[in-house]
Structures are given as structure tokens and as C-alpha cells.
């Protein structure tokens, strides 16, 4: 069955409704409109992928959800409550953390400082165990905890960036192009990490140009083109879709 454009496929919603709901979201860069009324939703515990070409508005959407990109109209609801008027800082406190495109390290600061800054909004007495948790997930970070983050390799930086976001104890983890610029074996490792996070119960919104890998592990997927969601379906259904195959999988 081919998915229809904009069809509201039924996500595995909990009775309380979706964790994240985006309704008619529009955003502009100056006079240029980057998002044209985006609608999507993510249920608690889901791994949802967003794929699309360069410039489709994927990063803009994630930045709007995090509150670092202004929104011109529409609404963003976290567990039913609108966060569209809240500052980026308040959104982190209410449970939205992002692993931004290009890793965005605090380069000259140590690995451990980067991780601890991830927990900036939290009570510092509670974060020691979380730091151990991140080190257990990425033992390489523990070995290099004093090293400047900017001196790590690309793959190590990506893991640090994920670890930093996890230090906020997010209810919703936004991942922007985590596989970008990494060698194939590292890409596999990153995707395995993402799957592991999903299994541990984290709700994940994954933006990827590597559509095949992203849709393979996702519960559901959305396809974006020029600022609009044009397709949505279960991850595997999108992988089988002829249009998606032609446009994004190179098949």
C-alpha cells in the first residue's frame, strides 16, 4: 500500500496524546519562507525519522522546535502544552534537547565540561550518576574526559554531542544529521546508538539525509520537500515507496 501525501497515519499514540505535536508551523528567514505549515506528531517512546533533500527545511524545523529559530505562525505542543512562546532555555527545562547539525562542540573546553554543560538547566547534585551513565555508553569519552572537545575526531565529537544532549535528561531528543561527514563504520555505530536509545525508552526525532538508514530503524517517517511535509508513513512503508526510492534512496 502506497502512503498518501499528508495522510495522518495513526501513530502508536498513548491515550494522553502525542508527546510532540507540530501544527501548521511556518517560519521565515527574512522575507524567505522556509516552513510552509508543517504538521506532524510524535508519540512517547517513538523513533520518528524526517528525511528530505538539502534545503527542504529539516534543520529549520528542528531549530524552531528547540526555540532558536523564530516561528511566524502555527503551534508546537509538548505533551499537550504549547511551548511556542517559551524561550529556548525554558524548552530545555521542559524536556526538549537537541543534537545539532555539525556537532557544535564548545571546542576549547574539556569533554567533561561539555557534558556537564549539557546538564546546565538541571540541579547539579543529581547529574553525577548521569555523567557515569554517559561514560558507560561511550567509554571513549571517559578516557578523554580532560581533552579539549575540539581535538576529538568527527565520530567522537558526534558521540560527545549526543552525550551532552542526554545530560539534560530529555523527554524528546532531536537529532540533526548525526551521520553527516562520518566514515561508514562510524555511521553504523551512531545508528546503533540511536536504536539503543530508543530501546531504553527515549523518544527520538531523527533528521537525516541518509534516508535509507534512518527509515530502516524508524517506527514512522516523514518526507519533507521545500518546507512542507509531503509524505508520512511507517518507516518500512516509506522505504518501499516508489517516489521515495527514486528521490531519496537513489534506487
Amino acid at each position: 500500500m502506497a502512503p498518501e501525501a499528508r495522510s495522518p497515519t495513526s501513530p502508536a499514540t498513548s491515550p494522553a496524546g502525542p508527546l510532540l505535536e507540530v501544527r501548521g508551523l511556518c517560519s521565515h528567514y527574512g522575507r524567505i519562507q522556509a516552513l510552509h505549515g508543517v504538521d506532524l506528531e510524535i508519540a512517547a517512546g517513538e523513533l520518528v525519522a524526517l528525511v528530505g533533500a538539502n534545503g527542504a527545511g529539516k534543520t529549520t524545523l528542528l531549530r524552531a522546535i528547540s526555540g532558536v529559530q523564530p516561528v511566524t505562525s502555527g503551534d508546537i505542543l509538548l505533551a499537550g502544552e504549547s511551548v511556542v512562546g517559551a524561550s529556548a532555555s525554558r524548552r530545555v527545562r521542559s524536556g526538549i534537547a537537541q543534537v545539532p547539525e555539525g556537532r557544535q562542540m564548545f571546542g576549547p573546553m574539556s569533554v567533561e565540561d561539555n557534558l556537564m554543560l549539557g546538564a546546565y538547566t538541571r540541579d547539579q547534585r543529581q547529574v553525577a550518576t548521569d555523567l557515569d551513565g554517559v561514560y558507560a555508553m561511550f567509554p571513549m569519552l571517559r578516557e578523554r574526559h580532560r581533552q579539549a572537545a575540539g581535538t576529538l575526531s568527527g565520530g567522537q565529537q558526534q558521540m560527545l554531542s549526543i552525550g551532552r544532549a542526554l545530560m539534560a535528561r530529555p523527554r524528546l531528543l532531536l537529532l540533526d544529521e548525526p551521520s553527516m561527514g562520518l566514515a561508514p563504520n562510524l555511521v553504523e555505530e551512531i545508528f546503533a546508538t540511536v536504536e539503543g536509545l530508543k530501546e531504553s525508552g527515549t523518544t527520538i526525532f531523527l533528521v537525516e539525509q541518509n534516508a535509507y538508514a534512518a527509515l530502516s530503524i524508524a517506527d514512522r517517517g516523514y518526507v519533507m520537500e521545500t518546507g512542507r511535509v509531503v509524505l508520512s508513513a511507517a518507516g518500512r512503508a516509506l522505504l518501499a515507496d516508489e517516489k521515495v526510492k527514486a528521490a531519496y534512496l537513489g534506487l
Binding site: S66, G67, V68, S87, A88, S89, R91, V92, R93, A97, Q98, P100, Q104, M105, F106, G107, P108, M109, D113, M116, L117, G118, Y120, T121, Q124, R164, A168
Partner: peptide, 23 residues
Amino acid sequence: ARFGKAMLATAYNPLAARLIGVN
């Protein structure tokens, strides 16, 4: 100090600082 580190973090990467919740 935590706020001092947040100020430094803002100097090194303002976008990332906002994304971890620094005002």
C-alpha cells in the same frame, strides 16, 4: 562557577549554548 562556564560556552558556540538552555 557554573554561570561562568556558561558565559565561556556562549563565547565558543552561541547556538550550542542556547540549545543546552543557556540564557
